[in-house]
Design a protein around this nucleic acid. Structure first.
Lengths: 195, 195
DNA sequence: TTAAATATGTTTGCACTGTAAACATTATTT
DNA sequence: AAATAATGTTTACAGTGCAAACATATTTAA
C-alpha cells in the first residue's frame, strides 16, 4: 500500500494552516483541523511539529517571507525619507491585506520568540532595515547619529506602524470612508519622527 | 440548605478571572477555571455571562476603570504638551504593570467590539481625551485645527503608545537595562507628533 | 543484500475546553 | 399560597492538545 507516507506532509500542514487562518481566522487554527484538511490522522502533524506553537512559528515565517519580498522590491531609492515612508506604507498595507498573517507574526501567539532562531532573525532583519534607513537619512543630512539614537527612532517608527496596523485590523477601521487619506496622514507623521 | 444561591456570583467570577489572568496568563482563563476557583458548578457562570467573550468584556471593563482612574489623577495641568506626555507615560506604565489587563483591553480577544456598548464607550472616552488635549494644545499655540485633523493626530499618538506598549510586553523588552531612558525618548517623540 | 535503525504514519486514551439541555432549588411576584 | 423567574446542578457532546503504544516504510550499516 502506497501513500502510507505522505511525502510532503510538513509543507502540506503549513499550507493547510495558512488556508485556515485566511478563511476562518486564527481561532480556528488547530493541529487537528490541519490534519483533517489533508486527510491524515490527527496526530500525524506531531511528527513534524513538536507542538502547536511550532506550527504557528512556521506559518509566521512564511508571512515574514512574503513581507520581506514586498519590501525588497523598493531597494533603490535615493531619497531616504521617501524610502522610509514607502517602507511604512508597504508594512501597513501588508497588515491590512493579510491581517491574520500579521497577527501571527507580530501578535502574542508565540510565547518566547527568542526561542525560535529563524523567527527572531526575520523579525530582527526588518528592524535593522528601519535602523539603516534612519542612519542613512541622518548621514545625508550631515547630522551626527549614534546607532543607539537611530535604534530609538526605529522603535518609535515601528511602534507607530505596528500600533496603527493593529488599530485598523482589530477595530475594523476599514469602515472609514477616508482610510487612504488617513494612511497618508499617518505616513506624514512618520516623517516627524525622523528628526 | 443555604448557599445554594451564591449571592454575588457574577462579581466573584470576574474577580476569579482577573486573578487567573494576572497569576497564570490569559491562555489559562476559562469559564470552567473561574467556576472551580469559586467552588461552583462549571456551568453556573452561564447564568451571568452568555459566553466566554462576555466574561472577557467584563474583565476588560475593570481594566478600563483602573486605567481611567490613573489618568484622571492628572487633570489640572496647564501645559498641554506636558499633559499629553504625562498621559502617555501613564498609559505605557499601565500596560507594563498590567500586561494581561492591557492585552484583554486592547488585544484581539473580543470579536466585535462595537457589540458591547460599555466597552466601546470606555475605549472611546480614552480616545476623546487624547483628541481634546490636542485641540487645547493647538488653541494655546493659536493654530487652527479641525477636529478631523486633531483626530488624525490622536490616532497617530495612540498608535505609537499602543505599538510601543505591545513591543515591551510582548517581546519582553524589560530585559533592557535602559528601559526608563527608552520610555522617555519615546515620549519625546510624541511631542514631535503634536505639531 | 539483508538486518537494524530511523522516519513517519495510525490508534487509543486522557485531561481540558465551550456550551446546550434538562432538571433542582430558591427568591420574587401575583 | 401558587405561579413565575432567577440561579444553581447534572449530564452530555464535540472539539482541543498532546503523550504512548503500535505499524509501516525508508535509510543506513553489517
Amino acid at each position: 500500500m502506497t501513500n502510507y507516507h505522505h511525502g510532503n506532509l510538513k509543507n502540506s500542514i503549513i499550507e493547510a494552516g495558512i488556508n485556515i487562518i485566511f478563511d476562518e481566522g486564527i481561532e480556528k487554527l488547530s493541529i487537528r483541523a490541519t490534519a483533517k484538511l489533508i486527510g491524515v490522522s490527527h496526530t500525524a502533524p506531531y511528527r513534524h511539529f513538536k507542538n502547536k506553537e511550532e506550527l504557528i512559528v512556521a506559518i509566521a515565517l512564511k508571512g515574514f517571507e512574503k513581507l520581506e519580498g514586498k519590501i525588497k522590491s523598493l531597494k533603490n531609492y535615493s531619497n531616504t525619507k521617501d524610502l522610509m515612508v514607502k517602507t511604512g506604507k508597504i508594512f501597513i498595507e501588508f497588515a491590512c491585506d493579510n491581517r491574520n498573517y500579521y497577527r501571527i507574526m507580530f501578535g502574542n501567539y508565540i510565547n518566547n520568540k527568542t526561542d525560535y532562531h529563524d523567527f527572531f532573525e526575520a523579525y530582527d532583519k526588518l528592524f535593522k532595515r528601519l535602523t539603516e534607513i534612519i542612519l542613512k537619512y541622518k548621514n545625508q543630512k550631515l547630522k551626527k547619529c549614534s546607532t543607539d539614537e537611530a535604534s530609538i527612532t526605529a522603535i518609535a517608527i515601528f511602534s507607530i506602524l505596528h500600533g496603527y496596523s493593529l488599530l485598523i485590523i482589530d477595530n475594523n477601521e476599514d469602515k472609514n470612508i477616508g482610510q487612504k487619506k488617513q494612511i497618508n496622514s499617518i505616513l506624514k507623521k512618520i516623517e516627524n519622527l525622523l528628526d
